[in-house]
């Protein structure tokens, strides 16, 4: 028998083996992708206007979806964390539904609701002439639908864990509700808020199923990087792999960059 002290200084071997397996789940597919990259043709493949348009559109729509999620998802999280009302568990279930639904189903639901013949989209179209499907706005909407739950759950959890006495203390010091929100509540949940925004952005960037079902696929208007990858897989595998590599590089770059700047307290 080795002494108990030596044992505790080393992590259990089983944990390390399982952790390595866990990491392999992420790394092995990435290696498979990298192994197939046509390195010599890469500059030529990435120089095409399809790639440039898709990258620009992906960044634009994923950032827009993240901003919209912050504007309406944080208040929703606040209501779920701080208010008691009948049917709250149903509301929370609805918020989480996009995590469970296949995105294609979500896209179809969006089409039936917000398409020009949809129950909301119809009147909207009659009143304003706005048609959301097949528009860049539709891409943003689809991305928001699938990505916002990540922000809502993260922020709701953080608000629940936040000791309400801090907000009470601010109020006794004469702070208005807005000042409490912006100077106490939000700064105190900043690490969770940042993590939620990063997850939301990442999910929005990778969104495919709901987008193609609701917003269609047209270069420079609705064709994001994942759609471009999917179409290219049909007839131009090298371009598809080059596009996938681009997505990996862009998202890793942003997520690691954010981690260094925002997630210090993690």
């Amino acid at each position: 028998m080795t002494g108990p002290v030596r044992r505790t200084t080393r992590p259990p071997a089983l944990v390390l083996v399982l952790a390595a397996l866990g990491l392999a789940v992420f790394v092995v597919p990435l290696l498979g992708l990298i192994a197939r990259v046509p390195w010599s043709r890469l500059p030529e493949l990435l120089a095409g206007d399809v790639v440039g348009d898709a990258l620009r559109l992906s960044l634009l729509t994923s950032i827009a979806a993240t901003v919209i999620s912050a504007l309406i998802g944080v208040p929703l999280a606040w209501v779920l964390a701080r208010m008691e009302f009948r049917g709250k568990s149903l509301v929370r279930g609805l918020v989480l539904l996009p995590l469970v639904l296949p995105p294609v189903v979500g896209g179809a639901a969006l089409l039936f609701a917000l398409g020009r013949r949809g129950i909301v989209g119809g009147p909207l179209n009659d009143l304003t002439g706005i048609v959301l499907p097949f528009s860049t706005g539709g891409v943003v909407l689809a991305a928001t639908f699938v990505a916002m739950p990540f922000l809502v759950i993260t922020v709701e959890g953080a608000l629940r864990n936040l000791d309400a006495r801090f907000e009470g203390a601010a109020a006794t010091l004469g702070a208005s509700r807005w000042r409490v929100l912006f100077r106490v509540t939000l700064p105190m949940i900043l690490p969770s808020l940042a993590a939620g925004l990063a997850l939301t952005w990442a999910r929005a960037l990778g969104e495919f199923g709901a987008t193609i079902t609701f917003a269609g696929n047209l270069q420079s208007r609705t064709q994001t990087l994942p759609l471009a990858v999917f179409v290219a897989l049909e007839n131009d595998r090298d371009t598809a792999i080059a596009l996938s590599l681009l997505m990996v590089v862009v998202s890793l770059g942003v997520l690691i960059g954010l981690r260094d700047r925002w997630w210090r307290s993690w």
Binding site: A108, L111, P133, F134, I212, T213, A215, G216, N217, L218, T222, Q223, F230, V231, E234
Partner: peptide
């Protein structure tokens, strides 16, 4: 004047 290039005929028919 194309508004969308659908990935397959099934999704085109749905729309």
């Amino acid at each position: 004047a194309i508004d969308t290039n659908e990935p397959d005929v099934r999704s085109l028919l749905t729309k």
